[in-house]
Design a binder for these strands. Structure first.
Lengths: 339, 339
DNA sequence: CACTGATTTGCATACGTATGCAGACAATCA
DNA sequence: TGATTGTCTGCATACGTATGCAAATCAGTG
């Protein structure tokens, strides 16, 4: 059924139907209500394709995963974020399209295809480690784009909804600083050097305020995966037996891998090794010991980030803007209870 | 740039451009190649909105999650499947839209909205426990729909790409039947009674062939979550200490929860308790002990299922069709090595 | 060269909506 | 009453593509 047929059925013009269903102020409230009521009753809905052709709006937002990063089933934080974002956008009448590049096909990336064909109104991306070409593509296409969670060095024209990772590092440093008998260690991975550096700086500063220093040699690396972190910690068991260690891990996935390895190797947590992760993914409390972590307020960030994107799409806002959220230290079972 | 402008630029008509880019046989190969080359060179692409308006095709497939089930970050198998499906569809030039209902808004479900506005060409759904109203909606909308993985009782007009869960159960039964000193136990959850019943029947049959019976009292339930399985197994520790037990779990998520609980409670695996899961999610080998499991050949099923959907969408096939895949028993560290 | 058939081209239109514009109608005021 | 404003309506058109149809071109044959 087209709007024209539907209009004839109600004895009004197609224009009036269109205006009523789009909430135009040109049609009086009672008539608007009537038309909407009838539409629901008869199951009529405006054709999205035609609507899109006229308005250049699709009612769809793309969620962009970077190929450098893991997928949702390898990185639980992505699934966690995706879940919240999806819920939030749907509640605001946007549908969600996944954009996940895994290398180019025919020299035309998925992002490129979607952007060029305008299949979305805007883009949300989690990490800011877009490749330069991707960032450039988004920028010159003029698509509204909000980056959640982490910042990318030197990229203009992008909007951020951040968690203050440096402050997170500071919180962990401030905590571990109270245990001078534990050697501090920072365990990160290669994928996000900018953010790791921020986190490490905060950690260092937090420790320093208690007179504790983070030795350069105690900045360790593994890959962004449970098993890599597991392997790392297994390989370190002699070191851990030699002296107590207080580990800040880049995120919960890594922290969880470390905790599991320590458990399997019979190293006491938190008696011998303390661990703090970051993100507070749901998985944090699946397993024992429950992970102490820096809670990233996803539940607050996502609505704000989505709101930012909607403002940009619907033209309520322009120019750059950035919001920032503070992580919160949550002590569970991988840290010693401070007296 | 529109196709008309682009056509003028090349000195041909808009029709020819349209035909060339859509691969019509009406335009000779050399000209087709030339036009395509130019299009790529100038970055021209046909407008998807207009195209959709004419053809009623969107180039998008919806992946439908049921609200009864967990989300991707709670159920790793969903993320695993999603990952494969997304990759497969993108490789075939379809984009992917997530359809995740969490209760209705305004009495209009997300699925309803998407179907009514025809934002997708077809639907893939993982589990077949669609609510009746959802199944009906899909059916009467005439959307091609393929259900992966599991079957739903008594639903016509749906196409299935299944893993043979009953055979999976049989494999586990046939294996555990060789260990008469282990009491068999089946651990399932309430969400998918049809499939659980099939699996249990296979398990029972497999055991019976070795003269072992599964007692009705040894059919246990927990929720579909890691922590619920963990809690269940923790609560059973006295039983496990009393006699050896061979557990078939409905899936790996549950099996993993059990394994972790046993580890934390100091119960020997597989010496005291053997565990077989199902799915073979990547998480299976993240943690120790590596889980013995019934490998579901996602890597084979997904391409076939997507192919089925594409056939339906592109009109190469109609009527119902169903394909089925055999799971495979993978022995790792939660089962006793048969001599 | 005339004719036939096959191949290729462009014209014209339709898809279903949003919206500028002009006109209809009601309300207000002098 | 007539003029003026404000509110509402419908007509007509444009968005950019796909495709039926007729026309044009070409190759092959007698």
């Amino acid at each position: 059924m087209t709007s024209k047929e539907f209009a004839r059925l109600l004895g009004v013009s197609q224009s009036t139907v269109s205006r009523a269903l789009n909430g135009s102020h040109l049609v009086p409230d009672d008539k608007k209500a009537f038309i909407r009521h009838k539409a629901r009753e008869l199951g009529f809905e405006l054709n999205r394709q035609a609507q899109s052709l006229k308005t250049n709006r699709t009612g769809t937002v793309g969620i962009l995963f970077q190929k450098h990063f893991k997928s949702m089933n390898e990185n639980p934080m992505l699934a966690h974020l995706y879940d919240h974002i999806q819920r939030e956008l749907i509640a605001n009448a946007y549908d969600v399209m996944t954009i996940y590049d895994r290398g180019d096909r025919d020299g035309l990336s998925v992002l490129e295809r979607i952007v060029r064909r305008r299949k979305v109104d805007g883009i949300i991306t989690f990490r800011s480690a877009l490749s330069d070409s991707e960032a450039q593509l988004i920028q010159q296409s003029g698509f509204p784009c909000v980056s959640l969670l982490n910042v990318r060095r030197a990229s203009a024209d992008m909007h951020y909804c951040l968690s203050d990772i440096e402050h997170g590092g500071w919180l962990a440093g401030d905590f571990f600083g109270r245990f001078p008998d534990y050697v501090p260690m920072y365990l990160t991975m290669g994928e996000e050097p900018d953010n790791a550096e921020l986190q490490c700086r905060g950690f260092r500063r937090g420790l320093a305020e208690h007179g504790v220093t983070l030795a350069d040699g105690e900045i360790r690396r593994c890959d962004l995966s449970f098993s890599s972190a597991y392997a790392f910690a297994s390989g370190m068991k002699e070191t851990f037996r030699r002296h107590r260690t207080a580990i800040l891990a880049y995120n919960d996935l890594i922290a969880r891998g470390v905790a599991e390895a320590l458990k399997d190797n019979g190293i006491a947590v938190p008696g011998t090794v303390q661990i703090i992760g970051m993100d507070d993914i749901p998985m944090s409390v699946w397993m024992r010991p429950h992970l102490s972590t820096l809670h990233v307020p996803v539940e607050e960030m996502v609505p704000v980030g989505c709101r930012m994107l909607r403002d940009l799409i619907e033209g309520r806002k322009d120019g750059e803007y950035t919001t920032s959220f503070q992580p919160r230290l949550v002590l569970r079972d991988t840290t010693v209870n401070p007296e």
